[in-house]
Design a protein around this nucleic acid. Sequence first.
DNA 1: TTAGGGTTAG
Length: 577
Amino acid sequence: MLCENVFPDASTIALLLRAAASVSGNKLGDAFHCQIVKLGFEFNLFLQTGLLNFYAKVGNLESAKRVFVEMPERDSVVHNVMISALGKQGYASDARKLFDEMPERSSFSWNSMISCYCRLGDIENARSVFDCNPLKDVITWNTMIDGYCKLGQLTLAKKLFDHMGCAKNTVTWNTMITGYVQCREFRTAISTFHEMQAQHVRPDEVTMISLLSASAHLGALDMGNWIHAYIRRRNFKIDVVLGNALIDMFSKCGCIDAALDVFYGLPKKNVFCWNSIIVGLATYGYGREVINTFIDMQTAGVKPDGVTFVGLLSGCSHSGLISEGRQYFSQMFTVYGVEPGLEHYGCMVDLLGKAGFLEEALDLVKAMPMAPNTIVLGSLLHACQVRKDAKLTEQVAEHLLDMDPRDGGNYVFLSNFYASVNRWHDVEKCRKLMVEKGVQKTPGCSSIEVDNVVHEFVAGDSSHPQFSQIKLFLDDIGKKLISLGHQVDMTPVLHDVDEEEKESAVRYHSERLAVAFGLMCTPPGKPIRVVKNLRACSDCHAAIKLISKLFERDIIVRDRSRFHHFRDGSCSCQDYW
DNA sequence: TTAGGGTTAG
């Protein structure tokens, strides 16, 4: 336009500013600023508001402030833009000062102020502005509900949600569903979605993303498949966020091929998408594919981050790729500029320890620039047990107890160790200590989805309505297993009880209850998918291998760290876990 | 000019 000597007018400049705000950085705004001066336009409210909007949107607070201060007159909209810009960058007191000075406040002003406090986690101030607000609209309620959700205060969020002064929209439902997902209440998230459907509120892409995340955590493949079909039916655009949620859901539900299909079908992939597929491949023990995908990621010009290296290193660990793991760990900062964190040391201790390089793992822990946490020491402890190094096991386990006396898992580690060397007196001491401190062992919990319902089984809990049938079925399986040569391994049992009791404690472990339920309730030949919150126990691992042969079923168990795909008497982990 | 979104070691 300028080349042809046709000069833009003020409104053209304002339109261009608006377009620039959504696509570009600060330089363009400065260029327009210069043009406005050069072309001799008067700085009226219209142009100044356009400029202010531009700077606010691209986050250039200094320039926004400059334009704001220079404005001869400021209307309510200008104030709102400024309050919102200040709020987004955490300047609550500056925003509040402007808010208090306003002669007339619109609902935009109130909402921006509440949102500003919520963003900072200052829920008391957010609530007091909310309570004073005479112009509450649906955005006001949504903002406040989200503020509680982000702090994990779900009860307060739900209270507002249930007593809203106006009709709920899609965002309201999404806020509540996402809140449940972020607080790991996945089943409530899904039941809230069913309520949303019952109220005939139309879900959108954001609803799907939260639901996919919930399904991924629960390993609820039927739900995940339903969402995938729904996304297609509604013709939702699969962008990087929705695409990533689908990749993660399929990979966490045991369908890595479907995850790969989504991944390769995405026209654009960001670091989240690459990370999800790398982490996914790692949990299946596909170490070579992890490394190849990492190489492809660099070819695609996407810079790896800390999460990428968690996937890469844990992939090497699950596949026993020791030298590759060592190499990538040593290069992660020097070559890729990613500082190793606690989680990367954790992967390395696991990788080295599992492979039997106990001294190297121990040296790495000693050389860590930060204090090791319970996960790192837990990996070390596991390594000590693999190597049957009793002295070091005891040292590490006691150190763990000192570090976190409220984590029940640590007592179990120590107690299991004492039990394995028949030190029953110490086992008893450990148990007493747990009772004294009111510590409870995290119960083993396994879930399985049957006909769209996620069934949960907790070790030692017989509340499932079909428990007695499952128990009878398991007893029957147990006999068959023994006839196939299965020898019950009771090392994972904590208590100092007689052999028979120990055996029954193992026999009713949560993963076995879930597998038995799956065998009872699904048609022959259908793969059984189970998700467990802890590591699979060694006896269950051996038993499920035999069950897969006995019943001719693929059994896919996702435990705390990886997938075990049991088929025809063996497991995809090749007993390296 | 105001509200809701995804990946992380055992």
